[in-house]
Write a protein that binds this DNA or RNA. Structure first.
Lengths: 214, 214
DNA sequence: GACAACATACCGACTGGTCGGTATTGTTCC
DNA sequence: GGAACAATACCGACCAGTCGGTATGTTGTC
């Protein structure tokens, strides 16, 4: 979902180039069926460079997951929905934003760590942990806004802000799976619509009750 | 989610044994990193038997997806929620059932085709199509109950029964991804809770209005 | 000339797939 | 009933190619 993958531009260094190549290729093909040679070819470097920077393919995957976290964090921090002062509007705005970026090739908007963790959770514990950290970190950012919205609108519910944030990530991950299965991005957008409607419903009655912001 | 994988019991034939082995191994490791040799070992057959029954590894994957459809269709048709005469209760009962089977090892309750399609959608069109057919078939069964519930409670909404059924599958697929990432089945159950709450909210107001069932 | 940052050539294990052969189970004709 | 034949289901050694990983060589910079 960040900058559309660029060709091996000069002077970024083999490490960066490999990380960038990993984002593209692993999202297209998955971790297991993306070979080191393929990664090197895409990055425009040789195998020597690969193993100079990463002791193993698994290490690259972990580094790629961390790189993904950095990129997406910056990407979402720069997104327009942060301008809203109302935390609920920020949450809804976040979902509108996620829906809006569901364009182009499927591999361009799907999630690296969600894809990778499916194949590796049982066999590569360190990759799994890196993927979990990435998802949890992003979910925590959403949870903060949800928690603020719950406080503002005096929501007392059987669910927590963390739980709803995690659910929103589940919906997005699931939407990506469905888009891949159907070969169709529109199906993912509809799931985001449902999620948005759900959150609106959760806050609806409470919002009517609360007139004063604080 | 069907019968906990059994050991290569005698006299089921190599083909069945291989199909069964595929369900287990691919859900644990994914398609690409499950080798033909591994499949054969798990099934207790030789490579000769493999390629006698399936012209290629890809063909086995397609057959496994179809086998999965058959198994899950039978499994859900036998589930207790069909006893309800109220279609909305059946939909909610379906969700309760899906939540209830979220036990044991992660690979035992996750979805074969959801896992497989992530790695193959871009590179193996025929596998993708088989996975899509499996998901769509299951979603259609849910959509029928949702449609009936919408008619019964006179829902006129901006969403369709099909869309909500597909969304429910997205939530489940996403819940599986999250469970794998967190190494934790409970997180999946919470997403199902959210989905259930959403559907209850969608039908809540309408249900109050409609006193007469038909 | 020492070190970082690569490139090149290579290794052995493993991969999906092939192939000649065999055990078992009908089927057919006498 | 039983010999002859044939189809089905399976075996396991083998093949060419690919895999992740290594060992060693080259080059630019301080």
């Amino acid at each position: 979902m960040p900058p559309r993958t660029s060709e091996p531009s000069p002077k970024r260094g083999a490490r960066q180039e490999l990380l960038e190549a990993a984002l593209g290729l692993i999202r297209e093909q998955g971790y297991a069926s993306t070979s080191v040679d393929e990664l090197c070819a895409q990055a425009g470097v040789t195998k020597g460079a690969f193993f100079y920077h990463f002791p193993s393919k698994e290490t690259l995957a972990i580094a790629a997951a961390n790189h993904w976290s950095k990129i997406t964090t910056a990407f979402f921090e720069a997104a327009p929905y942060h301008k809203y002062s109302d935390p609920l509007e920020r949450v809804l705005g976040y979902l509108d934003f996620r829906k809006a970026i569901l364009t182009g090739e499927i591999a361009e908007f799907t999630c690296l760590v969600g894809t990778m963790v499916q194949e590796t959770y049982g066999t590569h514990p360190d990759i799994r942990a890196a993927c979990e950290a990435s998802i949890s970190g992003h979910a925590a950012a959403i949870a903060a806004d949800i928690a603020e919205a719950m406080a503002r609108y005096r929501i007392r519910a059987s669910w927590t802000a963390e739980s709803l944030a995690l659910h929103s990530q589940a919906v997005l991950q699931g939407a990506f799976v469905m888009a891949k299965a159907m070969g169709n991005a529109a199906i993912a957008a509809e799931s985001v619509d449902h999620l948005r409607r759900y959150i609106e419903l959760l806050f609806q009655t409470a919002k009517l009750n609360a007139k004063e912001p604080s």
